[in-house]
């Protein structure tokens, strides 16, 4: 699919916490079907940036243009709240690091997946349930677990359920905050595999925040490295990881344990 405008156009987004910098004049484009990785150490402003882009926290300066279905490029920061919330449950998705933050723990798996459908007006129980069963299958959760609560699921399953819940309305842009954090390595590998195939299949664009370089190596087309609220280096993932230019990126790449 060739288009001549990016899906997301971020222009000098700045967020201050009092006199401290959250993130400072970050600009980038994200094209349809592209996966952008944001790496950096704790406190480098990557989660702040993600929350700014997703509209969870207020931005001090800058613009975030999104290619809306009805009106084309539109600054999401100037949208009214109903409009932005509508966007965040249709065209956008947000995968939290802790599945508990993104799931309703007291609602069954099927209800969790169905919530976004019902939020956009689905009112046929049978259809909602079939869709939920289909999506549980796609994230490798057996359909017999549809009426179980997420509290009865393992960490990896909860994370996959969160992904199903987010993707059920066919979003075009997914924000992911450390999607593999807190999972053991074999579960991480499976989740990454799943994410990669979903991103490819659905032609999703994604912004993935992580401190795990292996995650971006596998998933991301492009990479931004953040430090102290600034983007210090950006480029194609392989290029940045194989030939890091900035001192901090070099440190980051050399810090990865080789097994």
């Amino acid at each position: 699919m060739m288009t001549d405008c990016p899906l997301l156009d971020v222009r000098s987004v700045t967020k201050m916490y009092g006199r401290r910098i959250g993130c400072s004049s970050v600009s980038f484009d994200l094209w349809p079907g592209e996966v952008m990785g944001i790496v950096g150490e704790s406190g480098s402003g990557k989660s702040t940036l993600l929350n700014c882009l997703a509209g969870h926290i207020e931005v001090d300066q800058g613009q975030v243009f999104f290619d809306t279905r009805s009106e084309g490029m539109k600054d999401t920061l100037l949208m009214s709240e109903p409009e932005r919330r509508m966007l965040s449950r249709t065209d956008w998705a947000f995968v939290h690091q802790h599945a508990r933050d993104g799931l309703r723990m007291s609602v069954s798996a099927g209800g969790n997946v169905g919530e976004r459908l019902m939020a956009v007006g689905a009112r046929h129980y049978g259809n909602i349930r079939n869709e939920a069963i289909d999506w549980l299958g796609r994230v490798e959760i057996h359909h017999s677990r549809i009426d179980d609560r997420p509290t009865a699921f393992s960490g990896g399953m909860q994370q996959r359920l969160q992904i199903a819940r987010n993707l059920v309305t066919g979003p075009r842009l997914v924000f992911m905050d450390e999607p593999t954090g807190g999972l053991d390595v074999s579960v991480q590998a499976r989740l990454l595999d799943l994410l990669r195939s979903l991103v490819r299949e659905m032609g999703l664009s994604a912004i993935i925040v992580t401190h795990d370089l292996a995650v971006v190596r596998l998933l991301a087309d492009r990479l931004m490295v953040m430090k102290d609220g600034y983007v210090v280096e950006s480029g194609l993932t392989d290029q940045v990881l194989d030939d890091p230019q900035h001192a901090y990126t070099q440190l980051l790449v050399s810090s990865v344990l080789q097994v």
Partner: peptide, 22 residues
């Protein structure tokens, strides 16, 4: 309150969904 203000009532149907599934 925000959900009432913005007429976001999908959650109410989640409750009914849970009822039927249970």
């Amino acid at each position: 309150r925000k959900m009432h203000a913005l007429e976001e009532y999908g959650l109410m149907h989640v409750k009914l969904y849970e009822d039927i599934s249970k």
